[in-house]
Design a protein around this nucleic acid. Structure first.
Length: 854
RNA sequence: GGGCACGUAGAUCAGCGGAAGAUCGCUGCUUUCGCAAAGCAGAGGUCGGGGGUUCAAAUCCCCCCGUGUCCA
């Protein structure tokens, strides 16, 4: 980055000078006489025991000082955003305050909620989870205080000069930091294709804040100025509090009572991990994360398990829920929503803690067995076993060692080696833009007006063609719904041609016809939509919102829509939930949605500015995931459910008709899928199912209500006849065995061994059974031949030690080009088609006699 | 989203190319006034499902389904 980027008039005016750090060689600006930047590791912490601010603050006080300072200087205070970034599909968590405004605000698509603004945003970062409690300052969740300004070419709010000045004023006047102690280090910042200069603010060894100026777009190797420049600052609340108190660690400075209470029982590191994880969990669970083995749920699981493992080391320790509640009390002062719905949160945590217990119990058994087996074979349990157990059973190495009598040492680089086991795995980004395969109309083509938003009932309309290419047609306006938001597209006709697909592409909606489009730009065409299909799609879509609302209402606010599909034949909703739905819960949900249907509540669809909608309804709006655009389309089922949604909906709940749930399944850990039908489709499905029932009952010769008992009877009969067939075969073979043993031409005695042979047409399994019957006692040998489908089969069974069945077979097999093998007790071979089976039998008998008399 | 482990009798599991097993539980008999216990006998299996390789598959390969777990 060009040094002139940092050459601020403010620095010169205020008397700063530019120096180079003797340690890290970075340039920095200061009022003091430092030869190095005031950040670790270039210098030690100088504030431990000697606070760097005029007075100590607690987190509430410091946050208020910051927000108040910027409010007094023209900034608007903004409430925190959720820690789960549901308005984005590229990340799980809000990892910086600027995430709140990406991508729509920073790209210039929509105006910021205020400009300039100030916020204190809880952000989640899992990179440093191992450092928590170790470094004294790392946390999985911390509050990033920030002031942001968004500058358009025609309206600059403020940029580098004012930002730096405000920061310095806040530090030196409000907090009373020594002006000469602060250094502003020059750093280049880059992220998400944007970059720009940034200043890192150091004081007494601690990096307190970063001031980022997003200014350029990276375009290959060249830089282009951004149309919108952004002031992106980040002030670490916890670090400020720490600086103001000068305690040994940031944890004791920030967590107060809960931390102190835990210190009575736990080490400093353990207490730090507990309060940190408890705070992160309170936010994550409140914001709708359900612990699971994938996606964002995994992080919640990780936090819970790490915390539980520490708590379980002390018998007198409180439960995790108690720790969560104590930490939540402090959070609730600034984020009241974290204090609400504690019961639901407790249930989620309890279920997860229980599962962890089960996983560990299961693992202990396996560990013990492995060790017993290892001892039996004389081989020790190795480090590799520890790694494998952790990876596939989830057993922390400490617990494994506890369980073992002779344990290997836990390798220093244990977790690095776990990571190494996963090297080479490439997460595949499944996200493919379906629109990429579609052609793009030229830039100057007028955009398509989507009329279905305002009027979902119109199914015939006239419009003008604005573009046509091959089978694709774009109109100036259309009532055809394109596949989006989980709702599949409409069908119908455009002019004389059938519409087979409708997709959105940029600003246009493309109708795909069943052949090359017979229209040209400027033509007026008549569109007709398959009304029955559209009605069904609307019913399924509104039914889906009803399901979502009822599930959240009855199961708890931890339920979020994790995916949905609304087709003409079936609708599905996937929800986050920590256990399978019980029959009672399902029944309650079905009753509830059908009750709302009968109440005939109005369903209102309307557009509202994004920020305004988020303020009125909260972020539960984003049930369907990230929704693009400046204005959100809100679908509101009066007094029941509100979601941001672009779909076509009924205007009253009664239009949905009956809702029947067809199937409930757990599609993955923490996600339950419900499949259902409504409207006319529900009637069809019911009719079909009743027909199936009637027909089944008719074939069984019972009434519909007697189907279950009728089926039971049938199954019992089947079982009975299967058994008797088996018995009969056994009986037949038994009789045959007795006959053979009595028949001198079939049974002979050789060297004290009873040798029986037979030639027939039995299947392999039958030969086996017959042999078994013939060799019931000791010193018996059976040589059985069978011809089936033109191929010879030879079976040798033996209970005589001297006569090895496999050796006998090996002698006999060449006689009929047989392939096979076996063990000393039993052996079998199949010959080539047409090869002389009799010869093989003869050879086998000879070999058996020889062996018996040897 | 990716990797790994696991799915065998009612339960817990062994077997890991050659004739489906153990322990507990269950049924019956013996012994006992009865119970517990012991002994004897017995019932109970599409070896998760479907393909493939092989003379032969619970066992090897592929694809599903289910469970657990680690990583992003």
């Amino acid at each position: 980055m060009d040094p002139s980027e940092y050459d601020l008039a403010y620095f010169h005016r205020a008397g700063f000078h530019r120096r180079t750090c003797v340690v890290c060689h970075a340039a920095f600006w200061t009022l003091g006489a430092h030869d190095r930047c005031q950040e670790a590791p270039c210098r030690d912490y100088g504030f431990l025991g000697h606070p760097g601010f005029a007075r100590p603050y607690d987190p509430d006080g410091l946050r208020e000082a910051f927000l108040g300072f910027f409010e007094a200087r023209g900034h608007t205070r903004i409430r925190r955003y959720p820690t789960v970034a549901r308005w984005r599909n590229d990340v799980f968590f809000t990892q910086a305050s600027i995430y709140d405004f990406q991508p729509w605000v920073t790209s210039g698509a929509i105006p910021p909620p205020a400009n300039p603004l100030v916020i204190s945003q809880p952000v989640v970062r899992f990179i440093d989870i191992e450092e928590v409690g170790r470094s004294g300052r790392h946390m999985t969740l911390f509050e990033m205080m920030a002031h942001h300004a968004f500058n358009r070419p025609d309206h600059e709010v403020y940029f580098k000069e004012r930002t730096t000045e405000l920061c310095h004023e806040f530090l030196t006047t409000t907090l009373g930091a020594d002006p000469t102690g602060i250094t502003y280090k020059e750093e280049e910042w880059e992220g998400g294709g944007n970059l720009g200069p940034s200043l890192s603010v150091g004081l007494l060894g601690l990096e307190l804040a970063t001031l980022v100026f997003m200014e350029y777009l990276r375009d290959g190797t060249t830089l282009r100025p951004m149309p919108l420049t952004v002031v992106d600052t980040g002030y670490g609340l916890e670090r400020f509090v720490w600086m103001s108190r000068g305690t040994k660690t940031a944890y004791e400075a920030c967590f107060g009572r809960p931390y102190e209470d835990l210190r009575a029982t736990f080490s400093a590191r353990e207490a730090a991990i507990l309060v940190d994880h408890a705070r992160a969990l309170n936010y994550l669970l409140t914001d709708g994360v359900v612990p699971s083995n994938s996606k964002e749920g995994y992080f919640a699981r990780l936090l819970i398990r790490r915390a539980v493992r520490i708590l379980q080391t002390r018998p007198e320790a409180p439960t995790l829920n108690v720790v969560l509640d104590e930490v939540a009390r402090d959070i609730a002062r600034v984020a009241p929503e974290v204090g609400a719905h504690r019961d639901d949160l407790h249930r989620v945590v309890e279920a997860e803690v229980e599962r962890f217990g089960e996983a560990i119990a299961r693992a202990r058994v396996i560990i013990r067995r492995t060790e017993e087996r290892a001892q039996a074979s004389g081989e020790p349990v190795t480090e590799e076993d520890l790694l494998a157990w952790y990876d596939s059973l989830g057993v922390p190495p400490e617990i494994a060692v506890e369980e073992l009598r002779h344990a290997p040492k836990i390798p220093e680089d244990f977790y690095a080696r776990v990571a190494a086991r996963h090297e080479g795995e490439r997460p595949v980004n499944e996200y493919t833009d379906k629109g990429a395969e579609l052609p793009t109309p030229p830039e100057d083509t007028p955009a398509t007006q989507a009329e279905y938003y305002l009027d979902p009932y119109t199914v015939a309309f006239d419009a003008h063609v604005v573009w046509a290419s091959g089978p694709f047609v774009a109109l100036d306006r259309t009532y055809f719904y394109p596949t989006s938001g989980g709702q599949v597209h409409d069908l119908g006709q455009l002019g004389d041609q059938d519409v087979v697909d409708v997709e959105r592409k940029g600003r246009w909606i493309l109708h795909r016809l069943d052949g090359v489009a017979q229209v040209a730009p400027g033509d007026r065409v008549h569109g007709r939509i398959d009304a029955a299909r559209r009605t069904q799609l609307m019913q399924h879509h509104t039914a889906t919102h009803l399901m979502n609302g009822a599930l959240r209402e009855l199961l708890g606010p931890h339920v979020w829509q994790a995916g949905a599909y609304k087709g003409p034949d079936l609708a599905r909703i996937d929800i986050t939930h920590y256990r399978p739905l019980s029959r009672e819960e399902l029944r309650a949900v079905v009753q509830r949605v059908n009750a709302i249907v009968r109440e005939d509540r109005p369903v209102k669809s309307y557009f509202e500015p994004r920020t305004e909608a988020e303020r009125r309804f909260g972020f539960t709006l984003y049930q369907g995931g990230a929704v693009p655009g400046k204005d959100l389309r809100i679908v509101e089922i009066e007094g029941f459910d509100v979601e941001a949604c672009g779909g076509t909906h009924c205007t009253h709940t009664s239009e949905v008709g009956a809702i029947d749930v067809l199937d409930v399944e757990r599609i993955q850990d923490g996600v339950v899928r419900l499949s259902y039908v409504s409207g006319g489709r529900a009637l069809d499905v019911r009719e079909q199912q009743q027909e199936v029932l009637r027909e089944s009952a008719r074939r069984l010769g019972v009434g519909v209500d007697q189907l279950p008992s009728g089926v039971d009877r049938l199954l019992a009969e089947l079982e009975e006849s299967r058994k008797s067939a088996k018995q009969r075969l056994k009986g037949d073979l038994g009789a045959e065995a007795v006959r053979l043993l009595d028949d001198p031409s079939a049974t002979e005695s050789a060297g004290g061994v009873t040798l029986t042979h037979q030639t027939g047409a039995l299947a392999r399994e039958e030969l086996m059974e017959l042999s078994r019957l013939l060799t019931k006692g000791p010193d018996r040998v059976a040589v059985l031949a069978s011809e089936r489908d033109g191929r010879g089969l030879l079976f040798v069974g033996s209970t005589a030690e001297r006569v090895r069945a496999d050796l006998v077979l090996r002698h006999a097999a060449p006689a009929f080009s047989g392939k096979g093998g076996g063990n000393p007790a039993a052996a079998t071979a199949v010959g080539e088609p047409g090869a002389p089976l009799a010869e093989a039998l003869k050879a086998a008998l000879e070999a058996a006699r020889r062996a018996a008399t040897a």
